[in-house]
């Protein structure tokens, strides 16, 4: 699936997006998998309460299923307006 990062999440990980092959069943499992990878992911996902997630371009929750999902996006709370 395509995993997308925005704002300081993108800066900490150092990538705007990447293709990830995963067996993670939920967003939370994907986060655990990413955190275990490298320090830069650990730095980005250290405090989940500071993050928001969109699944296939819809705002979602960390317990959301990843079944048939094509894109997951991680970002800080939005600051539009």
């Amino acid at each position: 699936m395509n995993v997308v990062y925005f704002a300081w999440v993108r800066e900490r990980i150092g990538l705007p997006h990447e293709q990830i092959t995963t067996d993670a069943a939920t967003v939370a499992e994907l986060v655990d998998e990413l955190r275990a990878r490298e320090a830069r992911y650990e730095a980005a996902f250290a405090d989940i309460s500071a993050l928001r997630v969109a699944v296939d371009q819809e705002l979602s929750d960390f317990d959301a299923s990843l079944k048939d999902v094509r894109e997951v996006a991680f970002f800080p709370p939005m600051t539009g307006g």
Binding site: F6, A7, W8, A54, L59, A73, F75, P76, P77, M78, T79, G80, G81
Partner: peptide
């Protein structure tokens, strides 16, 4: 303000800063 996917970063003489919600 809080449900549209925009993020603002301010640059001043002292550095860069992501605007927090």
């Amino acid at each position: 303000k809080s449900r549209a996917p925009f993020w603002k970063k301010e640059t001043t003489a002292t550095g860069e800063n992501w605007v927090e919600s």
